[in-house]
Write a protein that binds this DNA or RNA. Structure first.
Lengths: 146, 146
DNA sequence: CGATATGTATCCATATTAGTCACATATATG
DNA sequence: CATATATGTGACTAATATGGATACATATCG
């Protein structure tokens, strides 16, 4: 499988709940339940996509590079380069066969529509919304615990 | 990567262009440009999903189990069980962390919306439409060759 | 019966994924 | 400045996924 998208969303949501405090890869790793190196690798990808920044050294850690309202799941999806994986085509269909020589183009056009629909839906959720949902869930938990 | 969805669509489209004539796994494999065993494995999955049937023995091969108008890319997508792969979650986020103990549910709800959008778009294309597109492409090719 | 073709088990090479260690580099702080 | 802290990245490993290949029991047609 490939859990990088889910972990990346987890990381960004976690950063939003930290409210501007830098989070170390070790702290994030304990929330995700994995190891800090993996987190740092994903943070590196997220930073390249302009979604996070990091401060090295004592008191350092990762921060959102911009407001959580402006970071959508689509941004995360693209930062992880997941779209390339989802609808992969077989490499070399037979050019001597009518189906073989047209399948890539024909299926490619249909898939483009699917990707557009996916993108539109992913764009509708922001990291801010994720953090908001989670804080609501937490309040419900508190109320239930009384 | 994972090209099974694309190959499965290729197989079904190929079967439709055969107009009711059984196609052997070897013939299909030559169009896809892979080996017959792989084709038979995918055909086995497609048959389990009710999309194809096969006749053993001499003169046998694979056939569409029902009209190409009634087989959508969503049917193929589901037959290949691709949805499970696309939005995989990390297994054990930390239950002691507010984000960790809510991320699965929260992200899961958002992802459900994305999957629904994908499904709706996949459902809009049938194998019949694929075969029609390809025959149009072929006619354009013929015209251009004059 | 013989030829043909599926269905499936087994094995292999390669790629992907996640986990782990190591270490150079950068930064804050005493 | 020295030290502690933390990132960024390379290297290695184990587990799993993927596609390709061989083999063969089973089924079907003529």
């Amino acid at each position: 499988m490939n859990t990088r998208f889910a972990v990346a969303v987890h990381i960004l949501t976690f950063l939003e709940t930290q409210a501007g405090l830098p989070a170390t890869s070790e702290l994030i790793a304990s929330s995700v339940n994995t190891n800090p190196t993996l987190i740092r690798r994903l943070l590196s990808q997220l930073a390249q996509a302009g979604l996070t920044t990091s401060r090295m050294g004592s008191g350092g850690g990762a921060l959102l590079a911009r407001s959580a309202e402006t970071i959508s799941l689509l941004d995360v999806w693209r930062a992880m380069d997941e779209a390339r994986e989802v609808f992969a085509m077989h490499e070399a269909p037979n050019p001597m066969c009518p189906v073989g020589r047209n399948i890539k183009r024909t299926l490619g056009l249909r898939i483009a529509g699917v990707q557009a629909a996916m993108d539109a839906e992913l764009a509708r959720t922001t990291i801010a919304a994720m953090a908001h949902d989670i804080s609501s869930d937490e309040q419900a938990r508190m109320a239930a615990a009384v």
